[in-house]
């Protein structure tokens, strides 16, 4: 959009953070976040996601490597790039004795690129966007957990943003709130804003993201579009499973359709799906008079990919 870094909002080259004592929080990170994407930054707690985000935003200085934000080489480009970046880092933090509106005004004042003349309008708009207009004049102290999270998102939306960095945006939200955040992210992305969202929950990321990066103990183990990542275990094919009392007949139908790996079990039969369309299997089973109680196609999921990559599941709070 602006400078020559072309089509990436975030690019890191060998970004490394080694803390005193030798502990490596982030190791040789090569991240590429395409413009306009919703990039899910996935990894268990403690895998270096937050340190990475802090480095990207110039809060923590890397011990090695380089990075660019919105085409500007960092950290020199902080004054140019950060006003176009909205950020939510490690949960909300506000002044408890100020109202929500006054809190946003405070952060807006910190941005030298923000125009004070439009501040009131932008603040009202951001509050409206997250549904806090009614609570704008309430003290932050009196906000519920969810309201605080929403106010933090509002702070990230104070200006025209080209990149939104959201660190665990649904932390502490109830299911309804989680859904709303997801909807908001999609809406923002629809405007062309790049969204970089970190999470330790695969389910969450999978539902709103177009691209993924996966962290494991400080290393980026995979990144790419969802489709690309799925292909990582292209070797594993989809499996069809038929629930039926007539397991033998079902198995022979499946074999008759040319499916490989046909097997039978207790009250079910299964096979590798291959190139056969599931509806053909259904039709064939019915035509053969097999009593079908249920039919499921299990495709290789991202979960499998990630478990393979990271050695652990993602819905488990680490």
């Amino acid at each position: 959009m602006t400078t020559g870094a072309g089509d990436h909002s975030i690019v890191t080259r060998g970004l490394t953070k080694r803390f005193r004592g030798g502990q490596v929080a982030v190791d040789d990170l090569h991240l590429s976040v395409p413009r306009g994407s919703v990039f899910g930054f996935l990894g268990p707690n403690g895998s270096g996601k937050t340190t990475t985000i802090r480095m990207l935003l110039g809060l923590v200085t890397p011990t090695g490597g380089a990075w660019e934000l919105l085409g500007a080489p960092m950290p020199g480009g902080i004054p140019a790039a950060l006003p176009r970046v909205g950020a939510l880092v490690e949960g909300p933090a506000f002044y408890p004795y100020l109202s929500g509106e006054a809190n946003l005004r405070r952060y807006d004042a910190a941005d030298p690129a923000a125009d004070p003349r439009t501040a009131s309008r932008r603040i009202a708009l951001a509050l409206e966007r997250v549904g806090l207009s009614a609570a704008a004049r309430k003290r932050y102290r009196a906000y519920s957990l969810g309201m605080r999270q929403r106010l933090a998102i509002a702070a990230a939306l104070l200006g025209p943003r080209e990149l939104l960095v959201l660190d665990e945006p649904t932390n502490g939200l109830d299911p309804q709130g989680t859904r709303e955040v997801r909807a908001l992210v999609k809406e923002i992305a629809a405007d062309g804003t790049t969204v970089f969202v970190s999470s330790h929950l695969l389910a969450e990321v999978e539902q709103m993201c177009t691209h993924l990066g996966v962290m494991r103990t400080g290393r980026l183990v995979a990144q790419g579009s969802l489709a690309e990542l799925r292909e990582l275990n292209a070797g594993e094919t989809a499996v069809v499973r038929v629930e039926t009392p007539d397991t033998a007949e079902a198995a022979s139908v499946l074999a008759g359709l040319g499916l490989a790996g046909v097997r039978t079990g207790d009250g079910e039969a299964g096979a590798e799906l291959g190139a056969v369309a599931p509806e053909r299997i259904t039709a064939a089973l019915v035509a053969a008079g097999v009593a079908v109680r249920g039919l499921a196609v299990r495709r290789p999921s991202l979960e499998d990919v990630f478990v393979g990559l990271t050695g652990e599941g993602f819905d488990v709070d680490g």
């Binding site: 935003l57 004054p79 006003p83 970046v85 880092v89 490690e90 910190a110 941005d111 030298p112």
Partner: peptide
């Protein structure tokens, strides 16, 4: 209070702040 990180990502600028 954690507000420092939001001031700096605004970005307030360290010297300026």
């Amino acid at each position: 209070a954690g507000t420092l990180r939001y001031l700096l990502t605004a970005p307030a600028g360290r010297t300026r702040l």
